[in-house]
């Protein structure tokens, strides 16, 4: 049986998520044995032409050129999985969605006329059909392996759409919001990080974006009660997943 092929494509992003693949040190050889890495410029100069069985897409769409390029990537991909907050929600660069891009250009670049950019940073799914979205800034490598393994063996990835709280409790991590009064985004945030921050006595920053149907309004109310001010509440919803509709809408309420 022909080995299935894997491709990795990058759009507007920091490369951290695709490097999670190389970070799978212990599993890397098994991975290379199980799937043919056909297009992964960060890892190898040997690049095969498509179509590909599984394509991982990192990054958001911020230019007209990329908005076209993603259509070609989609056309070459049997299964397309987006990885990371940029690809699934527009990333930190989606902060431009709340500002005047032309003004930014004039302040940041000596020759703004050299820059061709869109006014917004958007997720891959807002341009093409996506088969699965893997959240996180960065993604969790165990979850990435779960997605690839599940793809190879035709099963649904064991990745749940539930709040971080569920995993905090399963991991016996004491709630930092209730026991220490820390303003935490966990109740509205999609789990997947392995409760990285609460495990280290820090509140959740929402790196994995909103859980489906997150009640951000009730959470914001609680953040106010815990002493956070309007500007702070606006900003906690405006980080790596600022462009995710649930967080974007909530942050706009506190402008």
């Amino acid at each position: 049986m022909r080995k299935k092929t894997l491709a990795v494509f990058k759009f507007a992003s920091c490369d951290g998520c695709q490097l999670s693949l190389l970070d799978c040190e212990d599993e890397l050889l098994a991975l290379a044995g199980a799937i043919e890495i056909a297009h992964f410029p960060e890892a190898s100069r040997a690049v095969m032409d498509g179509p590909y069985d599984l394509t991982l897409v990192e990054g958001s769409i911020t230019t007209a050129h990329d908005a076209e390029r993603i259509k070609h990537v989609r056309a070459q991909s049997r299964t397309l999985v987006t990885i990371g907050a940029c690809a699934t929600a527009g990333g930190i660069q989606a902060l431009r969605n709340f500002a005047d891009t032309a003004e930014y250009l004039s302040v940041v670049y000596a020759r703004p006329d050299y820059i061709e950019t869109l006014a917004s940073s958007t997720s891959i799914a807002s341009h093409v059909t996506v088969d699965f979205e893997l959240r996180g800034c960065p993604i969790d490598k165990r979850q990435l392996l779960e997605v690839i393994t599940s793809f190879l063996h035709g099963k649904r990835p064991s990745i749940t759409d539930e709040s971080l709280c569920a995993d905090c409790k399963r991991a016996d991590v004491v709630c930092v919001m209730v026991s220490k009064g820390m303003p935490c985004l966990g109740p509205a945030t999609h789990t997947g990080c392995g409760v990285l921050c609460p495990r280290h006595d820090r509140a959740c920053y929402g790196c994995f974006g909103p859980v489906t149907a997150a009640n951000t309004g009730a959470l914001a109310e609680r953040l106010f009660q815990l002493g956070m001010r309007k500007d702070g509440v606006k900003r906690v919803f405006r980080s790596f997943n600022a462009g995710a509709p649930a967080f974007a809408d909530e942050s706009r309420k506190h402008e």
């Binding site: 539930e162 709040s163 709280c165 569920a166 409790k169 399963r170 709630c175 966990g186 109740p187 509205a188 149907a213 997150a214 009640n215 309004g217 009730a218 959470l219 109310e221």
Partner: peptide, 14 residues
């Protein structure tokens, strides 16, 4: 109640 409830699962987990 739903307007206040975060559906975060904490009540059921504890």
């Amino acid at each position: 109640v739903a307007e206040r409830c975060l559906a975060c699962t904490n009540c059921t987990m504890v």
